[in-house]
Simulated scan of single mutants.
Amino acid sequence: MKKILFCFGTRPEAIKMAPLIEEGLNRGHDVKVCITGQHRDMIIPFLEFFQIKVDYSLDIMRENQTLSSLTSNLLSKIEIVLKDFQPELVFVQGDTTSTFTCALAAFYQKIDVVHIEAGLRTGDIYSPFPEEGNRRLVTPIAKYLFAPTEESRANLLEEGVTENVVVTGNTSIDTLRKTITKIRSGQLNDSLRERYKDINFKKKIVLVTVHRRENHGQPLIQICNAIKELASSREDIEFVIPVHLNPNVKECIHASLEQFDNVHLYKPLEYIDFSWLMYMSYLIMTDSGGVQEEGPYFEKPILVMRENTERPEGVSEGVSKLIGSDSKLIINEVNKLFDSCEYYSSFSKNKNPYGDGFASEKVFDYLG
């Protein structure tokens, strides 16, 4: 039995940590969960759905805080948790500021760090910012590096990291597999359909998520212009857009799109709702890293509205396409996917490169 601390702050981290926490408990380890506080209100309902108990809640968010103040505040608070629990392993996931800071705090206490989703790279340290820098900084601190794909593993080997590098697939697929199983086996499907009865499911659903810093400003305006044109010109589309709470995103999207009857703008959705909407969608437009991994599970085309991606496997395998934020290109791609069955089906013919839904078991098989 090992003493294991799971540290995370955002909902995407929680989604990818949940099956690992469950697996650790199932194998008899002494597991504690620490949430740092970025997405607390969004995380708690998700953790309750998976019956995960929070042992430490740090509540670090402050209005208008900088990355520096966030990092220093978290570093001092996580130190208290580490000294209280004294874990043998600290699990961190991905590339958030919580990921980097919790790994650094563990390193200062000479505690072994387990990095889940290691090895992702864009090659540009400022894109995405600060995520690319965070994940690069965690690499030399971590003792165990679980890469989601062979390409991620190759990135680490290229940097000279050779010990304890293991390809597992992405744990988000584990969570998605379990979630969809629960939806299909119970009454959730009917209740979700009732909850979103304003959406005309007889039409084809285009699910859109956009929030990244590099799309703020003119790129987001271009994306909204494309959606406006498509919503106006196509009667067979229903756009569904969970709107990020960042004012730079929220104000632009509402000003551009709230007047359209076939554009449905929602507050950020709970994980269960969003997973179901991916399941119900015809195609997905996104700048999210997590959605790039999860969408192919449903064999839906993924249009990635970014200039580059740290998840190139989806592009190379043909389950997603990198299109940036240019309005004309977005419009052309969506029209082509609606008008050409052959083009649409070409996305679903390819294997999901992000895993088989059993990554968590592979992680603990290796750790013993």
Rank of each mutant, 00 (worst) to 15 (best):
L322G: 04
G133P: 10
E117M: 11
S327R: 03
D30L: 10
G357C: 08
S288Y: 06
A106M: 00
K362V: 13
S233M: 06
N134T: 15
L74I: 13
I253R: 08
E294D: 15
Y196K: 01
S185A: 15
H216K: 13
L277W: 01
L337M: 09
V363N: 09
L75Y: 15
T309M: 12
I205W: 01
A226Y: 05
E333T: 07
L207K: 09
L220Y: 07
P148K: 15
Q38A: 04
I52A: 04
V291H: 07
E317G: 03
D273F: 09
I284V: 15
I183C: 02
G318H: 03
Q218E: 13
T71I: 12
D190V: 01
H211A: 03
F85W: 12
P296W: 07
V113L: 02
Q86R: 06
L176P: 11
I141D: 08
Y354T: 05
L303Q: 10
L137S: 04
R11V: 07
I221Y: 06
E342D: 06
L58I: 11
I205H: 00
I141Y: 03
E229T: 15
Y282P: 00
E313A: 02
K336D: 04
N225W: 00
V113N: 02
Q292G: 07
C34T: 12
I323Y: 10
N170T: 09
D59G: 05
Y108M: 11
N248C: 03
A118R: 09
V363H: 00
S233V: 00
M305H: 12
E22P: 00
E194S: 15
P296E: 05
V90T: 11
E251I: 08
E333P: 13
V31R: 00
S172A: 15
Y144R: 04
Q187Y: 15
V167Q: 05
K178P: 00
V208H: 02
M278P: 09
E214Q: 10
E158T: 06
Y279P: 01
S346N: 12
G186A: 15
P45C: 03
F129N: 04
V240Y: 07
I183L: 10
R136F: 08
M278R: 00
S57V: 00
L25K: 09
E307Q: 11
L245N: 07
